[in-house]
Nucleic acid binder design. Structure first.
Lengths: 181, 181
DNA sequence: TAGGTACATGTACTCAGGGACATGTGTGAT
DNA sequence: ATCACACATGTCCCTGAGTACATGTACCTA
């Protein structure tokens, strides 16, 4: 269901084709809500059938640009306002951490190094993005303000995770660690 | 695939039945990796067929306790050591934040209040758990050390999210906000 | 002893996600 | 002119996640 509202939300900013949306999903929402083009085209057709979006124009190479309808706009808004938020974290890094005790100390250290590096880099990437936004490089529409809030979450979460991975390295592994069951 | 290794990881701590595992998944891993009992029983049967686990004992009410095999233990360890971590965040709260500009300012404030409250409560809950662990209430096995690391991630992440939601409330909504497309 | 509850395991169905495969077009570079 | 590449849209299939349905047992309490 989230893909559906992701698409409607992006189309609320203006008309776009499936191809455009696939790219934006990869660039913007990729680390938060991955979606492959087959799913996107399928969902767009379903949304069009239900009248939540409509074909705005047809371009070269069979390009179809969709525009959100009043009903579609109402649907995203209802989703945002009236539906319960699913707060599940679903992070593999966390799942793995429950089982660190099964790893050889050396492998664990290597793993945490990599994790810390990855998270720190992601945080830095988002931070750059936030700065560019704050310099006004993307204008100051309501959309970019929301984007700024989302980016801030990225910065803070990745920074937190990087710090956590560093901290985890300081936790002494127990004596009888990884060699037997 | 993560469910499979979640089960193997839990079974590495000691024998357990599908029922036990379903409860532990709900209590311990619930917010990180939700799994319903039908999936768990099905996966256990598959794991048993593949020889990664075996029936340890049969109890009352048809209870079947499984024990991890050497092959199973090797499989979790290989997963932990050799497979790439999927770093996708997949958080609905974040997805929604991209579309905050579609919400009425009042609804948004209410939403952020609720989010902040939820995250702060979750952080507090994990913090309590961490303190109990640090008081030594759960012993000091390698498993509980890993658990402690995972809990620390929960504390930090939820605290970060709570602060983020509070911060988001201070971002002024743009003038031409929610009333039209 | 009757009834409720927690224990315990499953099947069946639906929907969402992800990868592989398939096809065709306009544009720019060599 | 041809070739590569980005544009553009889809089908098909498999797996995973989630919900509803189904069944039965031990235990404790009124």
């Amino acid at each position: 269901m989230s893909l559906r509202y992701g698409l409607l939300g992006l189309l609320a900013e203006g008309p776009a084709s499936g191809y455009d949306l696939a790219r934006r999903f990869q660039e913007v929402l990729g680390s938060v809500w991955p979606a492959q083009h087959p799913k996107i085209y399928a969902e767009l057709n379903r949304l069009a059938q239900e009248g939540l979006i409509e074909v705005e124009s047809e371009g070269p190479r069979g390009r179809k640009a969709y525009r959100i309808t009043e009903a579609g706009l109402a649907a995203v808004r209802a989703w945002l306002r009236d539906t319960e938020v699913d707060h599940t974290l679903r992070m593999q890094s966390l799942l793995r951490s429950f089982f660190f005790w099964l790893m050889e100390p050396d492998d664990l250290r290597r793993h945490l190094d990599e994790e810390a590096r990855f998270f720190a880099e992601a945080a830095a990437r988002y931070e750059e993005y936030a700065k560019a936004k704050d310099r006004g490089e993307f204008g100051d529409s309501p959309q970019t303000r929301s984007m700024r809030i989302a980016i801030e979450a990225g910065v803070r979460l990745y920074r937190t995770l990087a710090e956590w991975a560093e901290w985890a390295k300081t936790v002494p592994p127990n004596s009888s660690t990884a060699t037997d069951s």
